[in-house]
Write a protein that binds this DNA or RNA. Sequence first.
DNA 1: TCTGGGGTCCTAGGACCC
DNA 2: TCTGGGGTCCTAGGACCC
Length: 412
Amino acid sequence: MNRTVFHVDMDAFFVSVEELFDPALKGKAVVVGGKSDERGVVSAASYEARKFGVHSALPLRTAYKLCPHAIFVPGHPERYREYSGRVFEILRRFSPLVEMASVDEAYLDMTGTERLHGPALRAADTLHETVKADTKLNCSIGIASSRLVAKIASDQAKPNGILRVLPGVEARFLAPLEVRKIPGVGKVMEKNLHALGIRRIADLAALDEDVLESRFGRWGLALAGKAHGLDAGGWFDAEIGERGDPKSISHEHTFNTDTKDAGQLEATLTHLAEKVGRRLREHGLHARTMQLKLRYSDFSTITRAHTFASPTQLDIDLVEQSRKLLHANWDSRRAIRLLGVQTSGFEHDQGQLDLMDGGRSERWRQALEAADRLRDRFGESAVALGSGMRGRYRERVQENPAALPGKEPRKK
DNA sequence: TCTGGGGTCCTAGGACCC
DNA sequence: TCTGGGGTCCTAGGACCC
């Protein structure tokens, strides 16, 4: 039996949402991601800006050189999440099997929905019109028998189009496309394939499976499947809508200017650890492992992990261990560009285990949840552990001499 | 041109266990 | 004296995606 998979991809999502809030941006060159002289990269560019060679992942300063008249906006993640949620609700009306693959794209399993929504193309058209009517946003839709082909089809359909690849012609559809179009084939893999004289998916499909496997291992084998339009390998062959808990939760920060200031580093680490701890509690998860990420001025990056004797969701544990890892591994003669805190190896809340430490963990957990609620009401800086607080002010004063403690505006 | 932030998955070696 | 084979966990790094 053939599956019918839709891949719905929002067109220039961030830019389009920004236009809803500021119609003056319409039709202009818009770059979302930050100011034109900041460290950072482009999150999204309007079609107008793309004409000048601006695209996502491009350094902002480069984007400015290519397109100095573009309007640079910092971006509003809350707005994107909100609209993403709205789109999700619409998609749910078309199929119970919906999976948001990221904030601006989703897979739907539409197998067997003909009685309800009609043939695939008509269903897609209705879906497209409904999204437009309810959100004023454009999307593109790919329809195929696998996630892989549906995704590539939606890409080919852009902007604002619908493309269906009929069952049986997947390989013919893929054949003329560059290998880079295959999700998972990036710069490095593309180069490796080019070195073998493989430029198009047809070249890949013509190759012997064993050759690919001996050359690239399991990935090569998956690649051979993909060249034929199959959902081969890892994430892709999972059922749609069956994504469970996250596998990792992390936060990181790149400094405006690299720093050797231990106080600033510790304060940042505390802040990051608090954000991570908070999200662990929101998900009801405890982390077995935490990892510190450290990037020096020259962009060289190291990661150092610690595994806890028993999994934790407490800020203090994350703060303490991340500090130990920092001091054990940082070459303090070198300035740091980025710090990150990541957690993984999750276990679910299981209630009463923490009686073992005389209720210490339980009291901490309750205090932290109270703090989380205060942050919701009064903003991120309303509550902090002692040293995080002091350090935070220091950093703010350093980066903006006018900033004073206690002047943080209320959210909303 | 000087490279964000949040993720996923894979590899490869070593420890450790049976 | 010359040492297996498999499974699992841990760590570090890297490719890739949006």
